[in-house]
Design a binder for these strands. Structure first.
Length: 243
DNA sequence: TATAATGTTTGAAC
DNA sequence: AGTTCAAACATTAT
């Protein structure tokens, strides 16, 4: 479920409930769900992997983590974490994190770090990377304060496209390659979105879960990389290691 | 059946 | 006091 583009699809899936009143609400979320009752949804927004349900004076923040799911006008067997019923349908969330953000949502988020937001600012990412020259690029790409919305699939595909080894040290990577990586984090996210909507995302993976490099036919390595120890898939022949 | 997977927060341990 | 790391959460496919 998780990476940014999937949350954008979620936002599109629930557009029918924008401006609608919550007729009834339930769920085992740790927040006081009764607060939503009879309130009208102003907007659905996303920030990276965060799905935001905006009301007048507060916002419900939903994070799918690894296993979150949702249903529109359907229910699963299990107890919903949060269930919203409207006059024109219902929206159910399962196994996700639900939190409340008080006040103006703009005071909680810097939209310019979201790679899929219209305010996305690659220059800001460049500055942030410049402030961590000793970190591995594989860790920085997953940093939600720099590339909100980018997850492990996008990380691997971006680095493969840019011919950069995931364990490369940021300060050692040529500036032109850094710029390309930054740009590709946004570009690939929109391609991810396009393919996922057509249910053909996986067939476009070039390195993630692959075992043979499609460029040189040599083996793709799989390794837990960086401080985060997330799986990286890469070709040591095609992806340059800068250390 | 055991394992790993699109993720993040928390709090103990050092 | 700052950093590191395991645990926790929880579901599904291989």
């Amino acid at each position: 479920m998780p990476e940014g583009p999937s949350i954008v699809i979620l936002k599109e899936d629930v557009h029918q409930f924008t401006g609608k009143k919550v007729v009834s609400v339930s769920g085992d979320a740790s927040i006081d769900v009764s607060r939503l009752k009879d309130k009208t949804i102003n907007a659905f927004k996303t920030w990276g992997k965060h799905f935001l349900i905006c009301f007048d004076s507060f916002t419900v923040k939903i994070h799918m983590l690894m296993f979150g799911t949702y249903r529109v006008n359907e229910r699963k067997e299990s107890t919903p974490r949060l269930s919203l019923v409207f006059e024109n349908g219902e929206l159910n969330f399962y196994t996700c994190s639900v939190k409340l953000l008080e006040g103006d949502i703009n005071s909680h988020y810097d939209w310019s770090v979201d790679v899929m937001n219209e305010s996305w600012d690659p220059k800001k990412a460049q500055i942030s990377l410049g402030e961590m020259p000793d970190k591995m690029i594989c860790d920085a790409i997953l940093d939600q304060n720099i590339f909100a919305g980018v997850g492990n699939i996008i990380k691997n595909e971006v680095l493969y496209r840019c011919y950069i080894h995931p364990e490369s040290i940021i300060g050692k990577i040529p500036p032109n390659d850094i710029s390309q990586i930054i740009a590709e984090c946004s570009t690939y996210s929109f391609e991810f979105l396009y393919w996922k909507k057509k249910f053909e995302l996986k067939q476009h993976w070039e390195v993630y879960t692959k075992s043979i490099c499609l460029r040189c036919n040599l083996p793709i390595l799989k390794k837990q990389t960086g401080d985060r120890k997330r799986s990286s898939f890469f070709c040591t022949n095609c992806q340059e290691l800068y250390i």
